[in-house]
């Protein structure tokens, strides 16, 4: 098994994006934060600001969203059983800035070289168009650049750890696989991914290519849907009123003809 290093790595690039992804109505004083464990083979205890927040956190699991007040957080991840008193953390991030009004996923995962690291990803929770779904793919695996294919054709190319790509697609189920960038060498999948309308389906590639532990993790954020723009439910112009108009005109014409006749008859009689 890969030796867990004590290198402290925190990737905060994602956090600065959070302000843009934040819905205007969200409370500016707190953010929605989910935590994903994507380091293979290592059950951990996660400490936030020195307190144990997630005991016995197993690889491949995801927490429900929790609300964290905006502010600065120290995150420390210990191998299960270790404590701040007895050992150094396996991964740590000091001064992680959580902005207000954002939706974040904090992921513990391997870097491209296999070093455990923490990444804070900002989740795009903006409204999706009616009928559409959002697909976010995050490279969180000890693996080189990859392409993601849907139904056999590449939809994401050259994605590297720890980057992400966001696509808005028609809702539905897609058969997706992950190949080494520019090749047909499948490293993950194919897997059927359900892209439900109005959701952001976030797929993480995690694990290690070298150790054969590559896997997919999925996080779903729903409630992003919007309504169709209208209901265009007539096409002929033949409905009752159109027909009525024709009748009305016919009636009026008939009245005119008849009226003229009456007048003429009266004139003749006079």
């Amino acid at each position: 098994m890969r030796k867990t290093t004590t290198t402290a790595t925190a990737l905060l690039a994602g956090v600065s994006l959070a302000a843009f992804a934040a819905p205007a109505s969200a409370d500016d004083h707190e953010s929605t934060v989910s935590v994903l464990h994507g380091v293979p083979g290592l059950t951990v205890d996660v400490y936030i600001n020195g307190e144990e927040a997630l005991p016995d956190f197993a690889p491949g699991t995801l927490t429900d969203p929790m609300m964290l007040a905006a502010g600065s957080y120290d995150i420390e991840v210990y191998a299960d059983g270790d404590t701040p008193d007895s050992a150094e953390p396996a991964i740590s991030a000091e001064g992680l800035e959580v902005p207000g009004g954002a939706n974040l996923t904090l992921a513990a995962h391997l870097g491209e070289d296999g070093t455990p690291m923490l990444s804070a990803f900002a989740n795009d929770v903006s409204t999706t168009e009616a009928g559409q779904a959002r697909l976010t793919v995050r490279h969180a695996a000890a693996a080189p650049a990859v392409d993601v294919r849907a139904g056999g054709s590449p939809v994401i190319e050259g994605l590297t750890n720890p980057d992400e790509k966001v696509l808005n697609l028609d809702a539905g189920s897609v058969s997706a696989d992950v190949v080494l960038a520019g090749t047909d060498e499948v490293v993950l999948g194919p897997a059927d991914v359900n892209l439900a309308e109005g959701t952001n389906t976030i797929v993480y590639a995690w694990g290690s290519a070298e150790d054969g532990t590559l896997d997919l993790a999925v996080q779903t954020i729903d409630g992003l849907h919007s309504a169709p723009e209208g209901v265009p439910s007539g096409q002929g112009g033949l409905a009752d009123q159109g027909a009525l108009l024709v009748l009305a005109l016919a009636g009026a014409a008939g009245a005119v003809v008849a009226g003229r006749r009456v007048i003429r008859a009266n004139v003749t009689a006079a």
Partner: peptide, 10 residues
């Protein structure tokens, strides 16, 4: 601690 669940493809 928040609830947690498997992130495996369901």
């Amino acid at each position: 601690p928040p609830a947690r669940s498997s992130a495996a493809l369901a």
